[in-house]
Amino acid sequence: MAFYITRRLLAMIPVLFVLSVIVFLIIYLIPGDPAAVMLGDGASPETIEALREQMGLNLPLLPQYLRWIGHTLQGELGDSFFMRQPVRTALAEHLGPTFSLALLAELIAIVIAVPLGVRAASRRGELADKALTGFSLFGITVPGFVLSMFTVLLFSVQLKWLPVSGYKPLSDGLITHLKYLILPALSLGIVQAALLARVTRSSMLEVLNEGFVKTALAKGVSEQGIVYRHVLRNALLPILTVIGGSFGALLAGAAVIESIFNIPGMGQLLVNSVQRRDYAVIQGVILFVAFAYVMVNLAVDLLCTIVDPRVRLK
């Protein structure tokens, strides 16, 4: 197993390399630079130029890239212009909120979607199934910000149960931590749930057609037992894959939700850095996101081997 994991990690390297080149090129092509943004509207061209020199923005493309690659391989991701801290630190600080948010959103999605999907599959064509279709279409079409607007109006402004925005880390207490995360996680989670419910349903339906379901029926297993003990576990593989994929996407940061709820996560970091042209951070975030994505996929693959004994590590 260790060998397998190592191999997967090594296979990640070419991916990251390709990405780094793409990112670097794109950034190089984008007009505008952080010096002007930092110094603002009334700054004189000389001041801007001096800052650009200091930031090393005037070097030609290849030396810049090589310098950056060299540093990255040593674990030195550089420093952020605007955050006055190493990129490493910026990433670490923004990882926590996004991770918590993604985890909570995914949990909400699973809790809503899997039972709904299972029920809809076992009661095909009935109310539960129709409800699922309705819900999943709702979740997919309603834009996140509209949903968040309503939930904020209800829970924060009217009922005053939850804060409107902001973030408190885990060290401030679990309840507080969750209070700040629940509304954004809900906005994200419901959308995820819509997709997940459909996948669950279709995966369950496929498994319901398998022969061993008849065997279980012939053994006298109840409907409940068939659905939960027999079918669900077999249907898990595609479900797990979707969960992994969506979790990875969430780690890239749900930028819009984070900006509405003011959560200092990866998405916000990325968008702000792009707007400010904070190059080192942009590159750091992209690499990190790719890395996280690969790791999540790896975790999902490992989980799949537990769930389905036929799946072997190759």
Binding site: T89, E93, L95, L170
Partner: peptide
């Protein structure tokens, strides 16, 4: 690995 992620992320933040 989950715990490691939480450990690595210093959401509390150093003071800048």
């Amino acid at each position: 690995s989950l715990l490691a992620v939480y450990g690595c992320s210093s959401g509390n933040g150093n003071n800048n």
